[in-house]
Amino acid sequence: MLKYTIQRLFSLIPILLVVAVIVFLLAHMTPGDPVTVLLGDEASEEAKAELRHELGFDLPVYTQFVNWFTGVVTGDLGMSFFLKKPVTEVFADYLGPTISLAIYAQIIAIVISLFLGVIAAKKRGTFTDQTVMGFSLLGISVPSFLVGLFLILLFAVQLQWFPVAGYRPLSEGLWEHLRYLTLPAIALGMMQAGLITRMTRSSMLDVMKSNYIKTAKSKGLHQNRITYKHALRNSFIPILTVIGESFGTLITGAAVVETVFNIPGIGQLIVNSIERRDFTVIQGTVLLITVTYVLLNLTVDLLYGVVDPRVRLNRKK
């Protein structure tokens, strides 16, 4: 297992290198002179030259890359022009709400979809099944920011059960925190719910055909015990794959949903930085999220071995 883990970590190196190069190139994709873009057309030549020197834009490109990359490896992502703070610090300031939202959304998605997926599998081919599958297709098709807008219209404007937008940190009490995060979390979790429902249903159907379920039935076990204890548990690995893969997308999806609900998270930071043309923040944020995303996927991959001993055995061969 350890050998495999190390192997997988090494295989990430070329991918992360390419990611770093792309993120670095982003700053050089500005049409025209980035310094003029930052300072505006009226800036004097001296001011431009000074900023160019400060940013290292007067050096050859590969030296710039080496300098930038050494910084990145040692945890220095540069300074934000606008906020005059290190990018890592800015990122940390905005991270809390995003993580909170992503976790809450994931929990909602799992609860809804396991429930619906199991029902759909049990009532295969019936009207209930079709309704559930239709719901999951809708969940997959509708982009999360749109779900968010519709939820606001229905539950905040019409019914007034939840606040329209805004955010309260956990320090103001769990109830307030959750009240403000519920609509965003549902909006964000819908797509995940759709995907996991589909996977739960198909995976349950696969397992239900197997011999040990027949044995359990002929032993006279109660239907619920068979469904929840034997079938659901054994169909968990494909479900876990989808959950794992989708958690990464939740973090980025959160960025979009946050804008809908004015939540001060990473998404808000990105959108604000775009308006302020604060490129170092955009670069740093994109890099940090992507690395998190890659590492999350790896963790999920490695977790299979822990959940399912068969995976470990297969790898040894």
Binding site: I15, L26, M29, G248, T252, I270, I274, I282, V286, T290
Partner: peptide
């Protein structure tokens, strides 16, 4: 290809448009 694929797609697109206008 793996490198580009590693990015969450909307994030990369957002960054490219943000930088290029």
């Amino acid at each position: 290809v793996d490198g580009i694929y590693a990015f969450p797609s909307i994030l990369l697109a957002l960054a490219i448009v943000a930088v290029r206008g």
